[in-house]
Design a protein around this nucleic acid. Structure first.
Lengths: 182, 182
DNA sequence: TGTACATCAGTGAACGCGCGTTCACTGATGTAC
DNA sequence: TGTACATCAGTGAACGCGCGTTCACTGATGTAC
């Protein structure tokens, strides 16, 4: 059945949203394109009308998630860090930050995927630099980079750890050490 | 052909070493058990004489890599941070730290794998706490946790980023901010 | 406005391929006499 | 010390299964007259 152009664009956005959630929840390899299409309400065969390959879907879905996802909204950097280092963000993986949920896989991913993630890193560091601690622009930028690294690492480690107490401690102590509340 | 007991133990250790390197280089899913065995100089069929499943191999190989690998040797914490946040460690993935090379996949791994990694986190935090900055034990432990989180996150991000200059900056600025040189 | 046709999003089934896993067999080693 | 047999690490081939990808077909929509 044919469908209007707007519906196609909506379907496409819907597929990307579904894929972004599934990938963050279970990783690139464990999620099949058949599953993504089914979850989006379409049949497997329609996939290649939307994307040339699974790799292309991955790059687009993550690219989308990086923008709409757990980026910095209107709130302050301190509030962003609070939510980033919360147990909620740790546990709700399907809507979480792509670096802490897919980072090690993404490092081996397509050039397109890595490029989109790189642009996201740039945006985030620039944004965080504005509010980070420091007397000079250089110091502020350093603090932003260090804070972002610690945030990503802490959530990653907190998710690997199988002891709830230790996991919480890592999130809380990392939060307490961030140079963001100047 | 039959072989002596010592040879079997050596072969097993060799398989684990090979698997640990391949997994860190290319991830759990992309490496097949046939490939691991071939690289170790054996045939595919011998695999299930050594391990009950691929999942078991993953847990054992990572467990081994966590101990012999990029852990803290005799050197100081500051020297450990220097080498951890070097471009060499970023680029030589096959012998690198399992958290920064396999962390996001490991977070979805078997209980056995996550448990071994948790024990490694505990050992590392305890060890780093001894030399970290701070006036009280609590402060030292906090600094150790924050430093370890930042180290893992920085290497992860530096590997995703496709711009060498930005990648180096993330490693260097994270290093400069660590509270380890008390 | 109504009819005839071209378009093309979506369907459903199939395809090769490579994966994890199994298994009958081999033959060098270790053991018993 | 030599011989006969049991053990079992390793071989090589096969197995289902599910993956990414392809394709002939369908039928509702948009367009032309």
């Amino acid at each position: 059945m044919k469908v209007s152009r707007e519906q196609v664009a909506e379907q496409r956005a819907h597929i990307l949203e579904v894929a972004g959630k599934l990938f963050r929840q279970r990783g690139f390899d464990d999620v099949t394109d058949a599953e993504v299409m089914k979850e989006a309400g379409l049949t497997h065969g329609a996939f290649y009308g939307y994307f040339p390959s699974k790799e292309a879907l991955i790059a687009e879905a993550v690219g989308q998630a990086l923008v709409t996802g757990h980026a910095v909204p209107g709130k302050s950097i301190a509030a962003f860090a609070d939510s980033y280092l919360s147990t909620r963000h740790r546990d709700e993986r399907e809507t979480s930050c792509c670096f802490s949920s897919l980072g090690t896989e993404a490092a081996r991913g397509s050039p397109e995927l890595r490029h989109r993630m790189t642009e996201s890193v740039r945006r985030l560091i620039d944004r965080m630099s504005q509010e980070a601690e420091g007397n000079t622009a250089r110091e502020k930028r350093r603090a932003a980079i260090a804070a972002w690294s610690a945030m990503v690492g802490a959530v990653l480690i907190a998710r690997v750890v199988d002891d709830e107490k230790l996991s919480k401690e890592i999130l809380a102590e990392t939060r307490a050490s961030l140079p963001l509340d100047a």
